[in-house]
Nucleic acid binder design. Sequence first.
DNA 1: TTTTTGCAAGTAAATATTCACTCACGTGCA
DNA 2: TGCACGTGAGTGAATATTTACTTGCAAAAA
Lengths: 193, 193
Amino acid sequence: MQITHRQQQVIDACAKLLMTQGVQGLTTKNLAREIGFSESALYRHFASKESIIAFLLEFLFQDIQSRLTPIAMNSKSPSDQVKAIFESQFLFFEKHPFYLVAILSEGLFDASNEIKLAMMKIVNFKMQLLNQLIVKGIENRIFRADIPAEYLVHSLMGNFRLLCLKWKMQDFKFSLTHKGKEMMYYQIKILEK
Amino acid sequence: MQITHRQQQVIDACAKLLMTQGVQGLTTKNLAREIGFSESALYRHFASKESIIAFLLEFLFQDIQSRLTPIAMNSKSPSDQVKAIFESQFLFFEKHPFYLVAILSEGLFDASNEIKLAMMKIVNFKMQLLNQLIVKGIENRIFRADIPAEYLVHSLMGNFRLLCLKWKMQDFKFSLTHKGKEMMYYQIKILEK
DNA sequence: TTTTTGCAAGTAAATATTCACTCACGTGCA
DNA sequence: TGCACGTGAGTGAATATTTACTTGCAAAAA
């Protein structure tokens, strides 16, 4: 995904604003000031605020895709693959927590279909990836077969999401990778029979 | 919790607006129009919009508390108690989905401490309630002991929350109680050893 | 009984502020 | 010349909240 210098600056500005003021602070005025720009200059690079957020999510999607796809294709055990996927996610969000601020603010998406779709794209990709690993794990008799793959995936995603939410609500105080690793240890225990 | 006629009207108006327009539609103007009086009249009954939302959440808390406490205190098995708690929650939210719209739009309210605290009050109450049941279940050797109660609670809450989120994102199309019951069947399977 | 006073609950209108976005107009560079 | 990039000034539409004033009722005072 090619990206101009200005677009990178916009992403950085979003990051700073989301971390310091939350979604409420993500305004065109603040963005422009953060970049060192006029508000109107923003519109030389993006059609609308909506498209800025959509761009942000698309950028996130590309990153997730390029990180997780190789993991899902390697030849390790399903347990290790699932663990690796989440560890990669925890590591990434610990480095770029502002994405979580955006993702966890559901209210942002009611207004815009473009943003809602970008969001769904990410979620669906991750769900499909996990599902395929879980199915493989069940077939290989590594994972329990008494619970449908669909529910195991739901459980993984739900736990992941809640941990991220708690992290955000506690102002990113604890180490997400550490708590995440701990959580995954027990999650794998649940998965394996 | 005593509540005036007007306060009930405000809650009803919030419900209608949250369901038809989401959090974005929850404005003083819309509220006033929905109730059938002026915007300023709103301020005869509430100090601010913030306090309206806080009131809504307090009302929700009272309901949850009075529904769930008896369940946690009866003499059934921990499995049945946990199941009953979530079934009560699913039933309630299926009846009053607008609460979910507010709760799941976390990020939009993080500017207000009053609202944040009201949310935490609800979450903490439910967590503490579940934790005590899980601990009892572990002690009675009904629930697995190889995973700390804290994580089992986290798993329950995470799955619950994600199901509600999916329900909302699909415009409340499927039956929450039905999907919820199905989910709980597998959740209990995970809990029990 | 009549009159006075107080108060809860309402109103229209205005308030100050913020928001995303537009437009006419540079400026420097290929 | 044309184009990419930038600006200052402005726009209408929202936003939550306040203001000064009114109304109906009920209790207290005459």
